[in-house]
Simulated assay, not measured.
Amino acid sequence: MPDRFRTAARGAGATTSDTDLDAAANYLLGRWAEPQRHYHDVTHLAAVLDVVDRFEHLAPNPDRVRLAAWLHDAVYDPRALGDANERDSAEFAEGLLLSLGAPDEVAAEVARLVGLTAGHATEDDDPDGELLCDADLSILAADTERYEQYTSAIRREYAHVPDDAFRAGRTRVLTELLKLPSIYRHSEIRAEWEERAQANLTAELAELA
């Protein structure tokens, strides 16, 4: 995994030493392995990176998208309110990348991309942001067994929330996703995953009800 971070950082213009890049990668992996994470963990990180690699041809700046994938849940506290995790992750991302010698523009853009994962809504003509959001939501198009593992892991992350409150909150999240014009932005990804994701979300909503 550190080699994937190093390659992306170099591709995005980071000028620090390989030793520093590897240290940053290992520090991030430590964050992704924190005990409160049951879904938002290293497995999720690797899955998002795999999607970005597969569909990198859809993004003008795939290395920036890869860095945003590494950093989009760098701060993750299930007890945080609103989009605090995404805001804090974006701020952390910009600071870290600047410390690694990334150009100001790159650090700011990666932070912007990280912020998009709060609501997974992008503006028109934002293929980098669209790829990150599509990759982050790729789990929604998983097969039935994997999707059930995902929902179970999410529930464990929110074990501190009573059942009624969790059902209400989860229902709001799924409903907002289903209100989007489509869950996936890129047409190539949408053609492959949209139908399955819609079915998974609809089935989960029925169970929550």
Results as ranks from 00 to 15, higher is better:
residue 178 L to T: 07
residue 65 V to W: 10
residue 146 R to V: 08
residue 186 H to M: 05
residue 197 A to D: 15
residue 2 P to F: 13
residue 1 M to G: 13
residue 121 A to F: 11
residue 21 L to S: 09
residue 26 N to A: 10
residue 178 L to K: 12
residue 160 H to V: 00
residue 164 D to H: 13
residue 174 L to I: 12
residue 153 A to S: 09
residue 144 T to R: 14
residue 15 T to D: 08
residue 80 A to Y: 00
residue 87 R to L: 10
residue 24 A to V: 04
residue 58 L to F: 11
residue 2 P to M: 12
residue 38 H to F: 13
residue 86 E to R: 06
residue 90 A to S: 14
residue 137 L to C: 01
residue 169 G to W: 03
residue 148 E to S: 09
residue 104 D to A: 08
residue 20 D to Y: 02
residue 160 H to F: 11
residue 143 D to T: 05
residue 96 L to C: 03
residue 7 T to Q: 14
residue 104 D to V: 10
residue 143 D to R: 05
residue 89 S to P: 00
residue 8 A to I: 01
residue 77 D to L: 09
residue 149 Q to A: 12
residue 122 T to K: 02
residue 77 D to Q: 12
residue 173 V to D: 06
residue 154 I to N: 02
residue 174 L to T: 03
residue 179 K to R: 15
residue 22 D to T: 14
residue 153 A to E: 07
residue 71 L to W: 05
residue 135 A to G: 10
residue 150 Y to I: 03
residue 58 L to D: 07
residue 115 G to L: 10
residue 125 D to F: 01
residue 78 P to A: 02
residue 5 F to D: 05
residue 62 P to F: 12
residue 40 H to N: 02
residue 161 V to A: 01
residue 28 L to G: 05
residue 15 T to S: 15
residue 56 E to V: 15
residue 158 Y to L: 04
residue 87 R to H: 15
residue 194 E to W: 13
residue 49 L to P: 05
residue 172 R to A: 14
residue 176 E to K: 03
residue 176 E to V: 02
residue 135 A to W: 04
residue 3 D to E: 15
residue 69 A to V: 10
residue 16 T to P: 04
residue 150 Y to V: 06
residue 101 G to V: 01
residue 87 R to S: 07
residue 173 V to N: 07
residue 140 L to R: 01
residue 20 D to F: 06
residue 8 A to E: 05
residue 119 G to R: 12
residue 167 R to Y: 05
residue 81 L to Q: 14
residue 118 A to C: 04
